[in-house]
């Protein structure tokens, strides 16, 4: 099965004043692949995601999605083309019940076009999605205001929000940040299943051990530049990558 390229990033750069947050980054992603983006704090991972999804306009370079140039696209248009993203600082709609948080993406132009549906149908779809990402069946949590959710559930809700958009490409920006070991452990199988189902994934992550269980290949950034790309086990042997992480947990995790 020959796979088409779903996303291509060409020499993408972003300068904030004199700082090169992202500098000449290029990579390709084929449909069904899972890509990890890693690097030390402040290396431009989140900026790269924001550039791809249109939340920040690039200074130079191009982004191609399904063969179309989407450089500097309006973020809501990127979503409606099928690029769903989560936020590092996930914030639910606090004053709205948990399941209704999902009504909003389910009401989006993209989902309405793909699935249709009338008022009320969406409630059921929302509850199903919550069960998919690990909310207990028949609990009262989905009906409570999202402001009262514990952090781990907020992240699950964020994931459910991405999935509700029926995306072709899912970009998860530090989904695991702030989650406990057990919370991560319980959500990992779900991500692996997503990958096995052939969903295209980009994961920005600090927790490499967990990241490597999901992704097929990784891109490593440092000071905004791509310093390595390849299979996870190859990349961690790379001298420059090791140096950028100051020889931290990389050894033990691979």
């Amino acid at each position: 099965m020959s796979k088409e390229t779903i996303l291509e990033v060409r020499n993408l750069s972003k300068n904030f004043g004199g700082v090169k947050a992202v500098s000449e980054v290029s990579f390709q992603l084929k449909r069904g692949e899972a890509l990890g983006v890693m690097g030390p704090n402040g290396c431009g991972k989140s900026t790269l995601i924001n550039l791809i999804t249109g939340f920040i306009k690039p200074s130079s370079g191009q982004v191609f999605y399904q063969g179309k140039d989407i450089t500097g696209i309006a973020p809501h248009k990127a979503v409606n083309l099928g690029i769903a993203r989560s936020f590092q600082m996930a914030k639910p709609f606090y004053n709205i019940p948990v399941y209704k948080n999902l009504i909003i993406p389910l009401f989006s132009p993209r989902v309405r076009k793909l699935v249709g549906g009338k008022f009320g149908d969406r409630d059921e779809a929302a509850i199903h999605l919550l069960e998919d990402v690990g909310f207990e069946r028949d609990s009262s949590i989905p009906y409570k205001a999202a402001g009262s959710l514990p952090h781990g559930y907020v992240k699950r809700l964020e994931l459910a929000r991405c999935l509700s958009l029926e995306p072709d490409l899912i970009i998860l920006d530090e989904l695991f940040s702030g989650m406990s070991m057990s919370e991560v452990a319980s959500i990992l199988p779900f991500l692996e299943r997503l990958r096995d189902e052939g969903k295209t994934l980009i994961m920005v992550e600090h927790r490499l051990k967990e990241l490597f269980r999901v992704v097929d290949k990784v891109v490593v950034l440092n000071f905004g530049k791509k310093i390595a790309e390849g299979l996870p086990e190859e990349v961690v042997q790379n001298e420059e990558v090791r140096k950028s992480y100051l020889g931290s947990e990389v050894d033990s995790s691979a």
């Binding site: 973020p75 979503v79 993203r85 936020f87 914030k91 709609f93 004053n95 709205i96 909003i104 929000r161």
Partner: peptide, 20 residues
């Protein structure tokens, strides 16, 4: 609901595909 959500977190409403 979309209108209400814009007050809570406009970025997430954009990320749900709406032109806020």
């Amino acid at each position: 609901l979309v209108l209400k959500a814009i007050k809570d977190n406009d970025r997430s409403v954009i990320a749900a595909g709406f032109n806020i």
